[in-house]
Nucleic acid binder design. Structure first.
Lengths: 202, 202, 202, 202
DNA sequence: AATGAATGAGCGTTCATTCAT
DNA sequence: CATGAATGAACGCTCATTCAT
C-alpha cells in the first residue's frame, strides 16, 4: 500500500532569515491594512497571508501595534528619501527651483503612497501630532525656505511656521484630488507653485 | 418582614423628552470619547455616565457608531455657525477684513474644539475625505475668496483650490501649536494673515 | 400662520373592540412567524405590523409565547373542523368512504396550512408530544377506524395505535411532497388510500 | 511573600489532540442540549462542562449552530449504522425477516436516542425536511421494500412513498409511546410488524 | 384601554496574546 | 526558530417585559 497522503500537508517547519520573515509579515500587514483597515485586520489574517504560523508573528513583533510603527517608519523614511532625491537634481543656488522640486516630489510621493499613509497615520491625535517623523519632514522643507531666505530669494517670518502651512496646504489639496478621483499631479503642482511662490515673493 | 440587605436602590424609571435623553447620551459620549478615545469607551461607560439603562441607548441610536456621526454633524454645524458669526461683524465690502475674520474665527473655533475634532474625524480616510460637511466648510471660505476676486481685491486662479490650501494650512499650523502646548491664537493668526494676504495680493 | 404639521403624526389613541385588536395581533404574528420564524420575530415586529403600540400587545397577551399558543389552538380547531366537514358528506355506514374522506380532508387541510403548522408545532419535544390537540385529532381518526371495526368492515388490533400510524404516515408523505415542491394532493391521496386500505382489509 | 487569597488555581494549559477536544465539546453540548434545550444552553455552559476556555470552543466551531450540525451528522450516521447492523443478521433472501429486522432496529435505535433526536431535529421546517440524512435513512428502508418487490414477496406501487409512510408511522408510534412513558419496544414492534406486513402482503 | 419610553439581564462572538511542543 | 492549540477578558447588541403617562 502506498502511503496515504495526509489531508493537511502539515506544512514543514521552515527556517528562513529573519529579514525575509519580517518583510513577509510587514508586507502582508500593509496590504491587509490598506484593504480593510487596521482594526478589521486580525493577526490571523496577517500570518495567513504571510504563510507563517501565529507564533512566528510574535517572535518578530511584540504586539500588533508594533507592525504599524514599523510601517510608519518605513513610510516616513521612504517619503523623505524620495522627496530628497527629487530635489537633488536642482542646482544648489536656485531656490525657487528647489521649492518647485519639493512640491513636485512631495505631491508625487504622496499620490503614490496615500493609501499606506492613511493606514499608518490613522490614529494620530494631537498628543502625537508632533512626532519625530513629521519634524524631519518639516525640517526638510524648512531648510529650503531658510536657504532661500538667507540668500535673499524671499522673506519668511518664521521658516517652520511657513513650512507647516505649505506642507499642510499641499497635503490638503492632494487629499481633495484623491477623494475626487483626480490622480494626475500636474494641475495640483501648478496651483501650489503659483500660490506658494506668490506667498514667498510678495 | 424579610431582610433587604443592601440591594441597589432600584432607580426609579424616569420618562423624559427624547431630546433631553439624546443630549445626555451624546454629551456623555463626547466627554468619554475625548477622555479615552472612541474604541476605549464602551456603551456601558456611556450609559453609566448618562445615568440611563443600556437599552435606552439603543432606543435612540442603532449603533455606537451612530453617536459618532451625530457628534460629527453637531461639530460641523457648530464650526460653521461660529465662523459665520465671526465674519458677520465685518462690513460686506471689506474683503481683506473678512478674510482676517475668517482666519480668526476658524483658528479660535478650532482651538476651542480640537479635542472633539480629533474624535469625530478620527477615522476619515480618503473614501470619506470629501464629505458634505467639509464641502460646506470649504464653500464658506471659497465664498470669501470669490467675493474678493469679483471685487478686484485679489486674483485667485481657483477659489476652491485656494480655499483648500488655506484651510489646511491653517489647520496644520493650529495642530502644531496645540501639539506644542501653545494655545494662544494670536501668533498663529498673525502669521496666517501675513502669509495668506501675501498669497492673495501678490 | 397655519399650524405646522408635526413630523410624527403622533398616532391618535384608538379605542377598538378587543376582538379586533387580538385578531390584528394574532394575524400579524402568524404572518411574521411564517415569514421569519418565531425567534426571529420580535414583539416590536408584531406591533408594528399590527399598527398598535407595544403596551397594547401586553394588554392582550401576557407573553410572546401566549400568541403561539393562541395560534396553536386556532390551527388545531381549524384542522379538526375542516377534516370533520370533509367527512360529513359521507354516508354514515360507508366506512371505507369515510376513511377516504378523512385522508382527502387531512391531506388537503395540511397542504393548505403547513406553514403555520411548522410555526406552531415548532418546539414540540417528547414532553409535549401527547397533547390535548393531538389527542383530539387522533380520536377523530380512531373513531373512523373503530366504527369500521364495529361494523365488521375491517380488523384493527388497536384503534389508537393504528390511527397514530396512519396519521403520521400521512403527515410524513405530505411533508416530503411539500419539500419536493409537489403541492397537488391527488397522487398523495391515491397512494395513501391504496396502502391504508390494504392495511385494513388484509 | 504577599498573600494569595483563594485565587483560582490557574488551570494548566493542556494541549490535546483535536479529536479529543472536539469530542469533549460535542459531548458536553449534547448533554446540555438534552438537559435544557439548545437555546437555554450557552456556549459558556458548554465550555465549562467540557473544561476548556471559551476561545477553544471557537477554535473548533465557527458558531454554536455548527455544533448542532455536527451532532446531527453523528446522530444520523449512528442511526444508519445501528439499523444496518440490525438487518445484517438476516438472510439476504428472507425479505419479511429483513423488514422485521428494520422495524426492530429502527424502533430500538430511536427509543435509545430520542432525546438527542429531539435536539438535533428541533428546527426542521419544510425547507430542510428533505435532507441528505433523511434521504439516506429512507433509502435504507426503500431498498428493503424494493428487494422484496423484485423477489415477488410483495407489491409496492412506490417504494420511496411507502418507505416514507412506514418510517413516519413508526416514528409517530414510538413518539406516542415515549410521551406516554412506555419505553418497551415489544408492543410497538408487534403492532408495526402486523400492520406493515398486512399492508405489503395484501 | 392605549401608548411608547425605559429597563437590564443575557449571550454569542472576537481576537490579541501566551506557551507547550 | 517555528508552530498552532489554548486562553479569557472584553464588548456590542438584542429584546421580552415593565410602567409612567
Amino acid at each position: 500500500m502506498s502511503e496515504r497522503p495526509l489531508e493537511k500537508p502539515k506544512k514543514q517547519r521552515q527556517v528562513l532569515p529573519a529579514e525575509m520573515r519580517v518583510d513577509a509579515l510587514v508586507g502582508a500587514a500593509a496590504d491587509l491594512f490598506i484593504e480593510r483597515g487596521i482594526d478589521a485586520t486580525t493577526v490571523d489574517d496577517i500570518v495567513n497571508r504571510a504563510g507563517v504560523a501565529k507564533g512566528t508573528f510574535y517572535h518578530y513583533f511584540a504586539t500588533k501595534t508594533e507592525v504599524v510603527h514599523t510601517l510608519r517608519d518605513r513610510f516616513s523614511a521612504d517619503y523623505l528619501s524620495r522627496v530628497a532625491s527629487a530635489m537633488e537634481a536642482c542646482p544648489e543656488g536656485d531656490h525657487t527651483a528647489r521649492l518647485r522640486a519639493w512640491i513636485r516630489g512631495a505631491v508625487a510621493t504622496y499620490l503614490a503612497n496615500f493609501q499606506l499613509h492613511d493606514v499608518v497615520f490613522h490614529d494620530f491625535t494631537h498628543e502625537r501630532r508632533r512626532s519625530e517623523e513629521k519634524d524631519a519632514i518639516l525640517d526638510q522643507l524648512a531648510s529650503v525656505l531658510q536657504d532661500g531666505q538667507r540668500a535673499g530669494a524671499w522673506q519668511v517670518p518664521d521658516a517652520r511656521g511657513v513650512a507647516i502651512i505649505l506642507f499642510h496646504g499641499m497635503h490638503g489639496l492632494v487629499d481633495d484630488a484623491i477623494a475626487a478621483g483626480q490622480r494626475g499631479p500636474e494641475p495640483l503642482c501648478d496651483l501650489l507653485e503659483d500660490m506658494f511662490l506668490r506667498m514667498l515673493n510678495a
